[in-house]
């Protein structure tokens, strides 16, 4: 898989302290002449996030795990972040960059709220926030000092009365689509999301969208499939629903899983060969 989109640590040089390459960062050389000023890789990471447009809004999903290399380090981390009344982020990648970025945006929105009492103007739309993020991430990659994240921005535009869903990552790459997934989710969940979306809306997207309940069940399925196949995932996740009523972030939940089939697999069950 492309190095840029797998947020697991790059395989490090094995040594006596890290025989199985579980640390996210290889040991630094004792002395080096090359300056190493900037983040060149993520450390504590969140895995893929999902998003889908449904009838009346957008839903985002992200699990609660923050990994340290292959170690499931923090198991109660919320990776869905509401911004204002009608926008929400789902963030994959480096968790410290995530915290830095959300702090920056929270401060920006708070400052805007303060000023809005005397200097009246419309609140930030999801598109406004997305453009800000895109510019931030592209500017940082252009300094070769990236913020190591892939982000889904979900929102409801109150002016246009339409939903908003778009992607931006550490390279400043941007795009929008009715279903989105980052990282390994782009390979495993995105096909499932597109299939279900197009089954109702048609390939031109002009038919009816999934209902809220259908969309949530679809995300539940995708999160389960990801938990089965993504070694850096956790069966504990949240779903954000963004609609005209605002942003609602669910409590953490789990999928029912069935591991009986695994008993027959070589390497999992009792057999040795």
């Amino acid at each position: 898989m492309n190095q840029l989109h797998s947020f697991q640590a790059v395989p490090s040089t094995r040594n006596a302290f890290d025989a199985y390459s579980t640390l996210p960062e290889p040991p630094r050389p004792q002395s080096t002449h090359a300056p190493r000023a900037h983040t060149q890789q993520p450390i504590v990471t969140g895995t893929s996030v999902l998003g889908i447009k449904y009838e009346g809004g957008v839903m985002l999903a992200a699990d609660n795990l923050a990994s340290y290399g292959s170690l499931a380090r923090f198991k109660d981390i919320q990776r869905l972040h509401p911004l204002g009344d009608n926008t929400c982020l789902a963030v994959a990648g480096d968790m410290s960059d995530f915290q830095y970025m959300t702090k920056l945006l929270d401060a920006t929105l708070r400052a805007d709220r303060s000023v809005s009492l005397t200097d009246t103007h419309p609140p930030f739309s999801p598109q406004n926030i997305y453009t800000y993020l895109s510019n931030l991430y592209y500017a940082r990659r252009s300094k070769v000092n990236p913020l190591w994240n892939a982000i889904l921005v979900g929102g409801w535009d109150k002016e246009k009365k339409e939903s908003f869903l778009a992607y931006v990552d550490l390279l400043g790459t941007t795009y929008s689509a009715p279903t989105l997934a980052t990282g390994i989710g782009a390979h495993i969940a995105q096909p499932l999301l597109r299939e279900a979306y197009e089954a109702k809306a048609g390939v031109d997207g002009k038919g009816p969208l999934l209902t809220g309940q259908e969309a949530e069940e679809l995300l539940d399925t995708c999160m389960k499939v990801l938990f089965y196949r993504d070694a850096r995932s956790l069966n504990k996740y949240q779903i954000a629903t963004i609609s005209n009523d605002g942003v609602k972030i669910s409590d953490s939940k789990s999928s029912e899983t069935e591991w009986g089939f695994a008993e027959g697999l070589r390497g999992y069950g009792p057999q040795t060969q």
């Binding site: 190095q3 840029l4 790059v10 080096t32 190493r36 990659r141 070769v144 990236p146 390279l171 790459t173």
Partner: peptide
């Protein structure tokens, strides 16, 4: 070898779409 290891991890600011 230590430099080579560093080089391998260098952030690549480009992609092809």
């Amino acid at each position: 070898p230590t430099m080579a290891a560093d080089k391998q991890h260098a952030f690549n600011p480009y992609s092809e779409n």
